[in-house]
Design a protein around this nucleic acid. Sequence first.
DNA 1: TGAAATGTTGGGGCG
DNA 2: ACGCCCCAACATTTC
Length: 482
Amino acid sequence: MEDAPVVLLFQRDLRVGDNPALTAAVESGAPVIPLFVLDDEAGAWAPGAASRWWLHHSLAALRVQLDALGVPLILRRGELAATLLDVTRAVAAKAVFWNRRHEPAAAARERTCEAELLRRGVRVEGFNATLLFEPARVRTREGHPFTVFTPFWRTCLALATDEAPLPAPRAIRAWDGALASLPLGALELEPAHDWAGEIAAAWTPGERGAHAQLERFLDERLPGYAAGRDRPDLDATSRLSPHLGFGEISARALRHASLAGAARAPRDTEAFLRQLGWREFSYHLLAHHPDLPDHPLRPEFARLPWRDDALAMGTWRRGKTGYPIVDAGMRQLWRTGWMHNRVRMIAASFLVKDLLLPWQAGERWFWETLVDADLANNSASWQWVAGCGADAAPYFRVFNPVLQGRRFDPDGSYVRRWIPELARLPDEAVHHPWSASETTLREAGVRLGVTYPTRIVDHAEARARALAAYAQIRDGRGAPKR
DNA sequence: TGAAATGTTGGGGCG
DNA sequence: ACGCCCCAACATTTC
């Protein structure tokens, strides 16, 4: 029994570098069996279509890396606890190592697994590989969870260290028994139709792709990041979010790498770390408010008179609202599985405020279509936009899609890229084609209502409607003011 | 990590 | 020369 193996359960940590559970498993001296379990019964927030596409390719990449280290990746499909019990029994494993997940449902599932495994005499060792600051670690002076970002992040920064990431193991001791694995295709993660064609061209899932992207970011984009990150026309963001989401690279490695250049570009480094901070804050909120994905943190928002308009919802999803910056974003999302963050805010504000459709509907669409869909980030951000979150934008803060477009896509190149039918409009008309003259439209080959939709709502009217809806709930009485 | 409405000020045109 | 008005430009308040 001396040579009983240990199982290494991969979750959202699909990497061999800076992987604490993997390092501990290797250092235990026992043979290591790497295992990934696809749990189709993982509940309402099981990965969406875009995430499943990414997961497929990330697992393929992980398998290649593990093969090079001398161990095969075992793939299974089924309920997590039952599968772990099956596997540990079949190989007589003495321990299971994993990096913890922090989503409440996933964490609860892990606790069940741990109890069941312990009951059968299998040791469990859990690690943190996902967050810089686990939710329980950061507290106000009163000992409460934070509800406001700025003091939260200040407290984190006071705790912060700059730990170097763990090196990848040079080799992993293989188990010499036989253990069946499903072929990757049997997980059925890839979409049936060719929806992913353009997504595939835009990304390289896997740990190597993640590090290549990080190097590009540090060299080319970190200088100027603070100012450029809001410009969807510039390709000035890190584009690391899906890699980070699947744990192909760790937040710790990102912090360490960006701090190495902090002296050269302190403001830009700080701005980048701050984005990691928002992710930490989202996990903090989710951990302390498990129903964050489904229910507004400010309960009165459940009484807001949201509309039920499937037609408008479809128009938004397909990028046919008639507001170019919104439509460009929604089309970028559908075609590449990603949308620039500034445009996410604009498109989200438009759904919630201009269309008065429930934020959960937008949250669900993003969940299905984003390759970087992350339960904490997605739900916290939608609540922020809707104004019902802990540290949310006030509800009356309504983005004007024309002004936002002009400010952040000044020559309209982002709009032109994703809405080619508007490409020939002059700069001053590209963000509001409805106010262009007949001549201008004709010369640009634009026929409103034919080649490009007429706008679904008038923003000024929609804004007034949203403010009126908000007024109904703000005093807690349900009666309109005045 | 807004925008619109409203208020204030000061320069210049003009009778 | 003077007062009046207009209206940018900027500041403040409100949604």
